[in-house]
Lab assay of single mutants.
Amino acid sequence: WVPTKREEKYGVAFYNYDARGADELSLQIGDTVHILETYEGWYRGYTLRKKSKKGIFPASYIHLKE
């Protein structure tokens, strides 16, 4: 896992994603996520609506905010 280059990196989910394991994070369309790390097509972070739950999710489900 590699920390993100920018201190504040955010994105928005444009697909729903159902977590398949305890380390994964479920997403709903429109969720804003804070991205902490990246690795081979995956991000690690949390949604702003539930900051206490961190997990991994596919990068392809996220539109990055500039």
Rank of each mutant, 00 (worst) to 15 (best):
G21R: 08
E8S: 11
D18Q: 14
H63N: 09
V12T: 08
I29W: 05
I56W: 15
G41K: 07
K9I: 10
T38W: 11
G21K: 10
Y17P: 01
K5A: 12
N16G: 07
Y43F: 10
L27C: 06
K65E: 11
I62F: 01
T4S: 14
G41E: 07
A19P: 06
E7Y: 13
H63K: 14
F57V: 01
H34L: 14
K50E: 15
Y17C: 06
T47D: 07
H34D: 00
E37Q: 07
G30R: 02
P58S: 03
D18K: 12
K51T: 13
S26M: 03
G45F: 06
K53Y: 06
D31L: 04
W1S: 07
G30H: 04
F14Q: 13
G45L: 04
R20Y: 05
F57C: 06
E8H: 15
T4L: 10
R6N: 12
R44Y: 15
F14V: 15
Y61W: 03
P3Q: 06
E8Y: 12
L48Y: 09
E7S: 13
K9W: 12
T32G: 06
E66M: 12
I62G: 02
K51R: 09
T32P: 07
A22Y: 08
E37D: 07
Y39L: 11
T47P: 02
K5Y: 09
R44V: 09
I35K: 00
D31A: 04
R6H: 12
K50Q: 15
V12D: 01
E8V: 09
P58M: 04
V33D: 00
G41F: 04
D23V: 07
G45R: 03
A22C: 09
H34S: 06
H63C: 14
L25C: 05
L64V: 09
S60A: 14
Y10M: 07
V12C: 11
Y15G: 14
S52A: 09
L25D: 03
Y61M: 13
L48C: 15
K54S: 09
A13N: 00
E8W: 10
K53I: 11
R6T: 13
H63T: 11
K54H: 10
I29K: 13
K5C: 13
E24K: 04
T38H: 10
D18P: 05
E24F: 05
R20H: 08
W1P: 07
Y61K: 06
D31H: 02
A19V: 01
T4R: 05
S26I: 04
Y61P: 03
S26K: 03
G21W: 06
E7G: 15
H63E: 12
K53F: 08
L25R: 00
P58Q: 03
E24W: 04
L64C: 07
K54G: 04
Y43P: 00
L48D: 09
A13K: 05
L25H: 01
K5W: 09
T47G: 01
G55T: 04
A22Q: 12
I56C: 10
K51Q: 11
A19G: 06
G55F: 03
A22G: 10
I35P: 01
E7P: 11
I29M: 07
P3G: 07
E37Y: 09
G41M: 04
G30T: 00
E40I: 06
K65T: 13
R6C: 14
I35F: 04
K50A: 15
L36D: 04
Y46Q: 02
Y15R: 15
A13S: 05
K54E: 08
Q28A: 10
K5D: 15
Y39E: 02
T47M: 09
A13V: 13
L36G: 01
W1K: 08
K9N: 06
G21T: 14
E66D: 12
L36A: 02
K50T: 11
P58A: 06
Y17L: 00
S52Y: 12
L27Y: 02
D18R: 10
L27M: 01
K50Y: 13
Y15E: 15
D23W: 10
E37W: 07
R6M: 11
R6A: 14
K50V: 12
V2F: 10
L36I: 11
D18L: 10
L64H: 03
G41R: 05
G55Y: 04
A13W: 05
A22S: 12
Y39A: 10
R49H: 14
G11S: 02
T32F: 14
D31S: 06
Y10Q: 05
L64T: 03
I56F: 12
E66L: 10
K51H: 09
L48K: 04
Y39G: 07
E37L: 06
P3N: 07
Q28K: 14
L27E: 00
P3W: 06
W42R: 00
E37A: 11
R6W: 11
E66H: 13
H34I: 15
Y61N: 07
A19N: 02
